[in-house]
Computed example of a mutant assay.
Amino acid sequence: MSAELPKNINVKEPRWDQETMSGRAKHFFTVTDPRNILLTNEQLDNAKKIIHNYRQGSVSPGLTEDELWRAKYIYDSAFHPDTGEKMILIGRMSAQVPMNMTITGCMMTFYKTTPAVIFWQWINQSFNAIVNYTNRSGDAPLTVSQLGTAYVSATTGAVATALGLNALTKRVSPLIGRFVPFAAVAAANCINIPLMRQRELKYGIPVTDENDNRLGESTKAAQQAITQVVISRILMAAPGMAIPPFIMNTLEKRAFLKRFPWMNAPIQVGLVGFCLVFATPLCCALFPQKSSISVSRLEPELQEKIRKTNPGVERVYFNKGL
């Protein structure tokens, strides 16, 4: 082991304390860094090699701790944690900001006509399906049928919500109409995420003690995990879909956009992107990735099992997902 590095760095866990909001925020600012999508395959494979070698006790001479952590986050940004496969580029967390700013900006620009609403809601849910498939759990893989059901249901729900609200807002202020895409996205998240994770709701997710010893599977923990993810996703979309409408409503009354109406979409995409750079990591950090639940809130049969085999355990832990 190289003298430059401590021998006990746990590169399986984040660098910062995940019990604090600031620690989780630092972690997710690194995870969602859009610059990672510009890395070459050679850089990704080199980061993978550094991490695998370190875990086996072999370190390149001169490697520093900062370089090790950088390699860890590059590796985590591109390779699936369970399967080890290189993930689809646009499905990676580092692609969330550039992809979402483009899609959301266009949804909020082209929201007045039925064909535009259908097209951009379809594009958005197609992207969500890719993200959910790319970041699927290796412990409970999605089947093609489950993926298809969630995709069709979320797309239908988003389109129906958008078209229904568009019809209702024709008689009110144009500013209110600008919030229709956000309502559609929120509705789609409430449909899409539970359907994508229906296996977890049916069979439960693994719960462990604080030392990661598996104690069983819990549907109650799955319900809490999915609720937290839905809240995070909706709040993640909120700033980028709630702040720009006020700005754009003002700008469209000015001479500049009246003279150059084609600038509407680029400005809107830029505003959404600025919001998402901060909203994406901060909302991912709202709840600990390793979340917990009291044993007394678990299913009666699991409570009984834990109290018999591990009488001192009062809380269990689980991965909430993203």
Rank of each mutant, 00 (worst) to 15 (best):
W16Y: 15
M1G: 12
T227C: 09
I191G: 06
I243C: 06
K305P: 02
E85C: 00
T219N: 01
Q303H: 11
L163N: 04
P206W: 03
F246Q: 00
A150K: 02
A160H: 02
G138E: 06
D17V: 06
F29G: 04
W262T: 00
Q198D: 09
T104Q: 13
E299I: 09
W122P: 00
K320L: 10
T113S: 15
E299R: 03
E304N: 15
L68P: 11
R307N: 14
Q223D: 02
M248W: 06
E19I: 00
T20R: 05
V269R: 05
D33T: 00
L147H: 04
M1E: 09
W262N: 10
A183R: 01
V277F: 14
K49A: 12
G204S: 04
I243V: 15
P245Y: 02
S232E: 02
E4Q: 15
V159C: 12
G148N: 07
G216K: 09
R259A: 14
G148P: 00
K112N: 14
Q223C: 08
F28I: 02
I103R: 03
A285Q: 03
T155M: 12
W120G: 06
I234E: 04
T149L: 15
V144M: 14
L215F: 05
F287K: 02
P300C: 06
L251W: 07
I191T: 06
D66W: 01
R92H: 02
V185S: 13
N46H: 15
V117K: 15
A285F: 08
Q125H: 10
K72F: 10
T143Y: 00
F256Y: 15
D45H: 15
R315V: 07
D212H: 12
Y203A: 11
T280L: 10
N132Y: 09
D45G: 05
T227D: 00
K305A: 11
G57H: 11
M21K: 07
D76Y: 06
E301V: 12
